[in-house]
């Protein structure tokens, strides 16, 4: 298993991650602007987590995307394909030019990711509450084989209102799946309102601890903090890891910051140009 970024990482992992996170924001926003479709607020809250995983943590080989020894990443918040497709292209899973087809007729870049269309996608997501249960199954396969690979899954926070997550949380805790890491993009906004005004999740850390998980809370836009918590070996902990990444929807652009309107809002020309000036 190769680690394409390793040479650069040895020099300064956090600088590389920061650089890629900015690129993901700019490229995904271009995709959303051109398609006039997408979920840019969630793309921006997740961009730093994705950059950290793909350029600092995951052992993967874009030339051999189904290598059995690969670390798995499952994008449970499958609506945030702007950021997800951008990071896959940045990591080399497919040519960057393919991003120009985002949501166009017959594009392989559907609004939600499809494993049969694109290398690097582990399971088809879109309906919420699917990524964690599938990831639990992947981690159990690794546990049965005493395999070295890790399984990471990124969910939204509103998504945790789906009961399927809590079924899976029970099994992961029961089986002490230390090879499993759940990252929650805790931007506190769901499609229509704040999570705490809709079906409140706090105290979220206590909920995961009660299910037998080890919990870490981090600033989900702090690349160094993300890198440290996600790259540390989970071996010997005896519990699955839940990283609550405190984030902001629309992070990086002033008028989108923490603004629910940008869940699936799309920019006009002026907004696009202003955002690109800010994302520099």
């Amino acid at each position: 298993m190769t680690f394409p970024a390793s040479a650069e990482l040895r020099n300064d992992p956090v600088a590389l991650i920061r650089d890629k996170a900015l690129w993901i924001r700019r490229r995904s926003f271009q995709m959303v602007y051109e398609a006039q479709l997408g979920h840019p607020g969630g793309d921006f809250s997740a961009a730093d987590v994705l950059a950290t995983l793909y350029f600092g943590v995951l052992r993967h080989d874009p030339a051999d995307p189904r290598n059995p020894a690969r670390d798995r990443f499952v994008m449970s918040k499958g609506h945030c394909t702007g950021a997800f497709y951008a990071v896959l292209a940045a990591a080399g899973f497919f040519p960057e030019a393919q991003l120009n087809t985002y949501m166009q007729p017959l594009s392989l870049l559907n609004g939600h990711p499809n494993r049969n269309y694109l290398p690097g996608v582990e399971t088809n997501t879109g309906p919420l509450g699917h990524g964690l249960p599938v990831s639990v199954g992947i981690a159990i396969a690794g546990q049965i084989d005493s395999a070295d690979f890790r399984t990471f899954v990124l969910t939204g926070d509103g998504e945790l209102q789906e009961g399927s997550n809590w079924e899976a949380a029970l099994t992961a805790g029961h089986r002490k799946l230390e090879n499993l890491t759940l990252i929650i993009d805790r931007n506190r906004l769901q499609q229509g309102a704040r999570t705490e005004e809709t079906a409140s999740l706090d105290p979220l850390d206590d909920k995961w601890r009660a299910f037998g998980w080890h919990v870490e809370m981090v600033d989900g836009h702090d690349h160094r903090a993300l890198y440290e918590v996600l790259s540390k070996s989970p071996k010997g902990r005896g519990k699955p890891l839940c990283v609550i990444a405190n984030t902001f929807k629309g992070k990086g652009v002033s008028f989108m910051h923490d603004n629910v309107a940008w869940h699936h809002g799309v920019p006009n020309k002026d907004q696009y140009e202003q955002a690109m000036r800010e994302l520099a």
């Binding site: 599938v134 199954g137 992947i138 981690a139 690794g142 079924e167």
Partner: peptide, 17 residues
């Protein structure tokens, strides 16, 4: 937990089972 029994099956297949 039927949702999980099916999803875990999908994950196990991903892991080569």
């Amino acid at each position: 937990a039927e949702q999980t029994v099916v999803a875990v099956g999908a994950g196990l297949a991903n892991g080569g089972k």
